[in-house]
Amino acid sequence: MSASPTRSGTPPGSPSAAKIAAAAAAAATARLPAPEPVSAEAAHAEAKFVAARKAMVRIIQWELNDDKHRALEQILDTTQYLLKICGNVKNSPDESKFRRIRITNPTFARHVRDASGGEQFMRAAGWVLQVHDFEKHFAFEHQPGQWEWRVLEAACVELEKLIALLQGKIQRGMGDKKAAQEKMRQQVRAALEDDKAQREARYEAEPRIGLSKAGGAIAAVDQ
């Protein structure tokens, strides 16, 4: 006599659906090719990228974003300029004109050379100081695919984050400033209205005082 099936329809002793699925998954995994081993050179490059990116982020957060000594608007100008020069290289890697910047350039001097954290960021993002035609330049000589290029790409992302943060702070500050100005206007308006009310009260009282004095003088003459 054959064994009767269970309530689920699976005969006793048969493998469950979960076991069948697990076996199928194990078989599929076994057929996958083994991951290729990472070369020592690639691992070394990855370690360099991680360390360089960490140093670059730290400079952005603690040196470039120096709101204790610079106004938020000044930091924003510097950050936007740095994003522009780094973005030009990232978006046009074959354009040599974007890869070299004179440090005596007035715009560069104002936004980077004379700004807190400006030159530190340039070095952390992969730019190097060179002398070209008897003038000092910051140059970026790395190519796409190199770990230094990845640092430049990461720098652009971090600069965009800082720009968004600064714009939010400035916008909130403008809102607070407008609120303070409106409060001051209300206080001035209230003071003016109070002064007007006091002057009107004095004006209304003055005729009565004059009549009272005149009446007293007439009474004195009659006596």
Rank of each mutant, 00 (worst) to 15 (best):
Met1Arg: 14
Met1Thr: 12
Met1His: 11
Ser4Arg: 15
Arg7Ser: 12
Gly13Pro: 02
Gly13Val: 05
Pro15Gly: 01
Ala17Glu: 06
Lys19Asn: 00
Ala22Glu: 13
Ala28Trp: 02
Arg31Met: 11
Leu32Asn: 10
Ala34Gln: 06
Glu36Ile: 11
Ala42Trp: 03
His44Phe: 13
Glu46Gln: 15
Ala47Tyr: 04
Phe49Gln: 15
Phe49Pro: 03
Arg53Cys: 11
Asp67Arg: 08
Asp67Lys: 14
Lys68Glu: 10
Gln74Asp: 14
Asp77Gly: 00
Thr78Asp: 08
Thr79Glu: 07
Thr79Met: 07
Gly87Glu: 02
Asn88Gly: 07
Pro93Gly: 04
Glu95His: 03
Thr104Cys: 00
Ala109Leu: 07
His111Gly: 04
Glu119Thr: 14
Ala124Pro: 08
Ala125Ile: 13
Leu129Met: 10
Leu129Arg: 13
Glu135Lys: 04
Lys136Met: 05
Ala155Arg: 00
Leu159Asn: 06
Leu159Phe: 06
Leu162Pro: 02
Leu162Gly: 00
Ile163Ala: 01
Ile163Val: 12
Ala164Leu: 14
Leu166Arg: 00
Arg172Thr: 09
Gly173Pro: 07
Met174Arg: 15
Lys183Glu: 15
Gln187Phe: 04
Leu192Gln: 14
Glu193Gln: 13
Glu193Leu: 14
Lys196Gln: 11
Ala197Phe: 05
Arg208Ser: 10
Ser212Thr: 06
Ala217Pro: 01
Ile218Leu: 13
Asp222Val: 11
Asp222Met: 11
